[in-house]
Computed example of a mutant assay.
Amino acid sequence: MKYRVGVIGGGQLAWMMGAEARRLGMELWVQTPNASDPGVSNADQVVIGAIDDLEATKKLVENCNVVTFENEFVDLAALDTLVKKGARFFPSLAFLAPLLDKYDQRHCCQQLSIPVPDFALWRLGEPLPEGWQFPFVVKARRHGYDGKGTFIVNNIAELQALPETLANTPLLLESFVPFEQELAVMVARNRQGEIRIFPTVETQQIDQVCRWALAPAAVSQAVLNQVENIARTLAEKLNLVGIMGIELFLTPQGQVLVNEIAPRTHNSGHFSLDACQTSQFAMQLQAIADLPLGNTDMMTPAAVMVNLLGFEHSIGNYAHKRQMLSQIPHSHVHWYDKTSASPGRKLGHVTIFSETKRREKLRAIAQQVETIWYEGKSPT
Rank of each mutant, 00 (worst) to 15 (best):
residue 226 Q to R: 01
residue 241 V to D: 08
residue 222 A to H: 13
residue 237 K to D: 13
residue 245 G to T: 09
residue 243 I to S: 13
residue 246 I to C: 06
residue 240 L to Q: 11
residue 235 A to Q: 07
residue 231 A to N: 03
residue 246 I to Y: 07
residue 232 R to Q: 04
residue 236 E to V: 08
residue 230 I to M: 08
residue 247 E to H: 10
residue 240 L to D: 11
residue 244 M to P: 08
residue 248 L to T: 03
residue 222 A to T: 13
residue 232 R to H: 02
residue 230 I to Y: 05
residue 235 A to N: 10
residue 246 I to T: 06
residue 229 N to A: 02
residue 249 F to A: 01
residue 250 L to T: 10
residue 233 T to H: 00
residue 241 V to L: 07
residue 247 E to P: 09
residue 234 L to E: 03
residue 229 N to W: 00
residue 230 I to H: 05
residue 241 V to T: 13
residue 240 L to H: 10
residue 222 A to W: 06
residue 245 G to C: 12
residue 232 R to P: 00
residue 227 V to R: 09
residue 238 L to T: 04
residue 226 Q to M: 02
residue 228 E to N: 15
residue 243 I to G: 13
residue 241 V to G: 07
residue 240 L to Y: 08
residue 240 L to P: 11
residue 231 A to Q: 03
residue 249 F to R: 01
residue 244 M to L: 15
residue 242 G to R: 15
residue 230 I to R: 02
residue 223 V to E: 05
residue 223 V to G: 06
residue 227 V to L: 14
residue 228 E to W: 09
residue 223 V to W: 02
residue 248 L to Y: 03
residue 225 N to D: 14
residue 225 N to S: 12
residue 227 V to S: 11
residue 241 V to A: 11
residue 249 F to T: 00
residue 232 R to F: 00
residue 250 L to C: 13
residue 252 P to F: 02
residue 239 N to H: 15
residue 236 E to Y: 02
residue 230 I to A: 05
residue 230 I to G: 02
residue 223 V to S: 04
residue 240 L to R: 06
residue 231 A to L: 04
residue 229 N to S: 05
residue 241 V to N: 11
residue 226 Q to C: 01
residue 234 L to C: 06
residue 243 I to P: 13
residue 251 T to M: 10
residue 246 I to E: 03
residue 223 V to L: 07
